[in-house]
Amino acid sequence: MIAIIDYGMGNLKSVFNAFKQVSPEADIKVTSNPADIKKAHRVVFPGQGAMPDCIRELDERNLRSSVIDAAKTKPFLGICIGLQMLFDKSEEGNVDGLGLLSGTIKRFNNQNSLDESGHKLKIPHMGWNEVSQTNKHPLWQNISDNDRFYFVHSYYLESQDKSIVSAETSYAQKFCCAIAKDNIFAVQFHPEKSSLAGLELIKNFIQWSI
């Protein structure tokens, strides 16, 4: 069973739909039940909205330890805030993350930044940007380097640990948009909204054996 963790922050139907599209036969469950997460063979940790709210909702549902267990033991895919929450802390509301990985989530600064056509840098970073793969990973299989994925976020990961970086994207500056460590893979973009490339990544996750 593939568990998509639901902690009340926004709509997970897009994630569910994308997994169903890729693998109609698979047993996919959107769930907030720790027993499901424990039983699952793969776990998807999505997230949208503000990180302080996400952490609070996660704790209100007593899901913190289930998420941490899953992230330590089975194929685990973090999406958007689901990536951000894995790290030490975020500038957004100055909140602590789950601390599974070391790094800080920072806000894009557009005070002195222009985009490449000379216009003011817009926040959120919203739209299709190129994802440059920095290491070989089973989740990048059949996805071209620099293929575009759909992003929508105002905060990004800054980590001193370069060994976990799996892809980078440029938005006025280069930032890490995908991380990989052991059984964890997490992306800042939305594979479920990234058309064929996104579906390919989801397919790779479903087939990923660690």
Binding site: D115, E116, G127, W128, N129, N146, Y171
Partner: peptide, 8 residues
């Protein structure tokens, strides 16, 4: 290389 402009 950067963020693509969108057509909607």
């Amino acid at each position: 290389m950067s963020l693509a402009k969108r057509i909607i």
